[in-house]
Design a protein around this nucleic acid. Structure first.
Lengths: 329, 329
DNA sequence: AACGCCAATGACATCGATGTCATAGCATTT
DNA sequence: AAATGCTATGACATCGATGTCATTGGCGTT
């Protein structure tokens, strides 16, 4: 790996001149320039990004941390961020945090230690106050899940309204016993979805029944167990609202033959091809990622400290068959 | 951001001593050590990874580049790599290349310029010979798709055999007009799958019919067009072999009502929940990622130059309903 | 008491690129 | 001809951590 020194020696100039040529500094004689360019080609010179970013003090990459890359929702968010950043020559460094809240801090710190230019984050833990120190220098943008213990730019969906719509719709189909299924209680987004669910029940004059809430349905096995539990209820549900796409996919097998209506939060691939096709609250993960990336880029200019009130993206009910609607033509 | 200098000043020692404390060098008096540790805590010292890796000459991260993160197959590969690397304190830097072969080289070069410790790659282009220069210093491991123009460690699935199995199985159900659908012709894996398909036909004494091959089926719209085209054939197919999971998902809507049997290469979420459930050739992306990551780690010790013959992971037919089998109890 | 040895610590150079300032050379002005 | 200005180039310092070697001082040996 040739360095600038090598090129300089080869071209008979100083390293600084090589640097100037490389960075298109106009103060170089055409003759000198071509000598240097020739030497660079000869030695196959490639700049050492490590040295450059070290000198510059911060890298030209932006970190993206999401709970799970295998989740198509987050994959789309990441995809959007990559799209925006690749246009500006900024590298995206993607990591998945995993389901364990305790892993969040170490994973993020090892990311941030690389002098990231910025961080786009969908947290899994319940406290991000320790990020304050980093936030002073590094813009941090929260997506999908609002931060706690720290204020920062945030882009979330209208979880509450989406859950309200879904629940209201099921109520409109005549259901009064509607189960709420999730894979964890703590994420703020799940809480807001539970809120919306309860609000819709309340507005329809239906009493909230704790025994219809099942929040341990992560993975097919536990999903099945939770659904069994719900149906062992004295009065089983006749409809289910599932609080995210992963859970929706996990409970579908368990729901077979139970004749329950279903609406899930979050669309997923093949949802429209299942029998019955699954009605969902449609989010726009790509837009979420796009907005977050653009905000991050804007903060590189503005400075890291500032932040605006959370942006709440609208969601819409996508009626398919599982809610009880008839297939659309 | 405090530096070692700051800590040294604060503790009244030299920067070198701070470095020693930080790196658990035994040649430090306990008293000095605690003084330094106190200063570090006081100033909230965090090492500058950029400076460290710059000094060390190479970073402690491994690059992972796949065509598409939204594809659950590659998402699983990445997940496995992350799992292995996180145990050894190596950061994984994930990028998706996208469908355009021309983007591959710039994307990878910008990754490699960061002095990656190694690279795990599922290429989209047809020539990786330019990687030779990097491969001398940086172990490069190919997954899912074998390299061309360069020799390197490679982990692929048994594409040919998988396609053979699938085609043979469809033939066993009495089909003689079997369509082959893909989203591109050039990836070596697709070619091998086409090979396997042709071999199975040949072994059964069925003539290969060019007009049953449709290789432009990327995305739902084009998938629908390709299926329409196949069915406009004078003798339409009665069964379809789809060469990857994305294509399988894309053609399913178009196949509705056509009564064709279907086997796809690659399992996907919900494949077992569709009606009919979709028979597939099952791969093991997680294992693929795990093996690749372990090989990369091994190369860090061995040195980059070497490589072993490609490892071919076995695949197995997962019989569900779409091939014509009856549901398993 | 003289010598050598080892442990603890620090001074300095180093990695590669680049910012700052100096200098040499040439042209233009008065 | 001297003063001024401007351009092309280079010397040197710098970013932060750490490898190398030197220095200091205490201890044990003969």
């Amino acid at each position: 790996m040739a360095t600038m020194q090598d090129v300089a020696l080869h071209a008979g100039v100083s390293p600084k001149t090589v640097s100037r040529v490389f960075n298109d500094d106009p103060h170089v004689l055409p003759e000198t320039r071509s000598k240097v360019e020739h030497a660079m080609r000869e030695l196959n010179y490639v700049p050492n990004v490590l040295a450059r970013t070290f000198r510059a003090g911060r890298s030209s990459s932006i970190g993206v941390a999401v709970p799970d890359l295998v989740d198509p929702f987050f994959a789309s968010v990441v995809h959007a961020v990559e799209g925006v950043c690749s246009l500006t020559g900024i590298t995206t460094l993607v990591t998945s945090i995993g389901p364990d809240p305790a892993r969040e801090r170490p994973v993020l710190e090892s990311l941030l230690r690389n002098q990231m230019r910025g961080l786009i984050l969908a947290p899994v833990s319940e406290d991000q106050s320790w990020l304050t120190r980093w936030a002073e220098h590094t813009p941090i943008i929260f997506v999908d899940r609002a931060p706690s213990g720290i204020e920062a730019d945030t882009f979330i969906e209208d979880d509450r309204h989406g859950a309200y719509l879904a629940t209201e719709h099921l109520i409109g189909h005549g259901h009064t016993r509607i189960g709420f299924v999730a894979d964890a209680t703590h994420p703020p987004s799940t809480r807001r979805r539970l809120d919306g669910y309860r609000a819709a029940l309340a507005d329809a004059g239906i009493a909230f029944d704790e025994s219809l809430v099942a929040c341990e349905a992560g993975g097919r096995a536990r999903a099945t167990a939770e659904i069994d539990r719900l149906w062992n209820n004295r009065m089983p549900p006749t409809a289910i609202f599932s609080s995210n796409a992963r859970v929706t996919m996990d409970i579908i097998p368990a729901l077979r033959g139970r004749g329950a209506a279903l609406v899930g939060f979050g669309d997923f691939q093949m949802a429209d091809q299942l029998t019955p096709s699954v009605s969902v609250v449609g989010q726009d993960p790509f837009e979420l990622g796009r907005l977050a990336a653009n905000r991050a880029l804007a903060r590189f200019a503005d400075g890291a400290g500032a932040h605006e009130p959370a942006s709440v993206l609208p969601v819409a009910l996508v009626r398919r068959e599982s809610c009880g609607c008839s297939p659309v033509s």
